[in-house]
């Protein structure tokens, strides 16, 4: 267990450092001016709004919608290629280690309160919602619904995304009187979503990641073929269930080590009393023990 605690601390440190690095335009938090330099050409791997005063890079979901919503919608080769490359290299490892909003939810879950477990059948159905958000709000609506000038809006950013409110809407409203003055019904709606997600995160582990996040849904598509994958040594595994009990994403790593819901946090590896679980790179041979990689 000491090993697991050390691992959790290390992961929190990596998450915190990455959140700081991707929001290193610290003067923006004082002036209310967002960074507009050349680094904003590049998409960060996790959910990090480009309207955040500290953001150095672009949000991939925002950038993807920006490509679609223009007068001449273009296939987003750059953004989709970049996200697919990250997905096929490390899958949802990004969710577990490099997403600032994932960190926020995890910190809230650390508040000592009774925790809720969503009934298994309902949880299983709700997990598909995030694919719906990706398909409908990120891809379809911005492509189909256009005004008389042929322009569309980023529907996910506009109507759903709590990350934009947390990192952009709230700090900018605090810093800028003009933005405060322009905040009306839409602002109230998005603020309500943000508060709901943050409150839910105190009781349910990473609810946004499990049920809503379109970026996590995209990476999940590559989970079974990603270079970084999880492997079970079935000879060593005594099926004690320690890995399933420790998993806060409700995955059973001994049965489905490369489940689309696994965020590669690695807690199960450290919880296993027989060291039967490990990360492995695709193409790397194993010791010869029987293994499960589905």
């Amino acid at each position: 267990m000491a090993d697991l605690k050390t691992h959790r601390r290390k992961r929190k440190a990596v998450q915190g450092l990455w959140a700081l690095l991707t929001n290193a335009h610290l003067s923006g938090f004082v002036t209310g001016q967002i960074y507009s330099g050349p680094l904003k050409r590049f998409c960060v791997p996790g959910m990090n709004c480009y309207a955040c005063p500290g953001a150095l890079g672009a949000c991939p979901i925002g950038a993807l919608q920006a490509m679609i919503t223009g007068r001449k919608p273009r296939f987003a080769f750059y953004v989709l290629g970049w996200l697919a490359l990250l997905g096929v290299l490390v899958g949802r490892f990004i969710c577990g280690w490099l997403c600032p909003f994932g960190l926020v939810q995890e910190l809230l879950y650390m508040i000592p309160t009774p925790k809720l477990t969503v009934p298994k059948a309902l949880d299983k159905r709700l997990r598909y919602l995030k694919y719906g958000f990706l398909l409908v709000f990120v891809l379809l609506l911005p492509t189909i619904l256009r005004d008389e000038f042929g322009l569309s809006v980023p529907y996910f950013c506009k109507w759903i995304c709590p990350v934009g409110m947390l990192e952009g809407g709230v700090p900018l409203a605090l810093l800028d009187r003009g933005i405060r003055g322009a905040a009306h019904a839409l602002y109230a709606w998005k603020l309500a979503i943000l508060i709901f997600v943050l409150l839910l995160s105190v009781f349910i582990h990473r609810p946004f990641c499990k049920y809503v996040c379109p970026l996590g849904a995209f990476y999940a598509l590559f989970q079974k073929i990603s270079v970084l994958r999880m492997e079970v040594d079935t000879d060593a595994c005594i099926q004690c269930g320690a890995c399933a009990r420790i998993c806060r994403m409700q995955v059973d790593p001994a049965k489905t080590p490369n489940s689309a819901e696994c965020i590669r946090c690695g807690a199960c590896i450290h919880a296993c009393p027989r060291n039967a679980l490990k990360f492995r790179a695709a193409g790397k041979g194993t010791s010869g023990a029987e293994r499960r990689t589905t």
């Binding site: 949000c59 750059y78 953004v79 934009g164």
Partner: peptide, 25 residues
């Protein structure tokens, strides 16, 4: 291919301007 086609400039254009939709206004 996307980068060569100039898509990073489109991303920069969007990301460098304040996104009002993201902020809820």
């Amino acid at each position: 291919f996307g980068a060569v086609r100039g898509e990073t400039a489109d991303v920069l254009q969007k990301a460098a301007a304040l996104c009002l939709e993201c902020c809820g206004i």
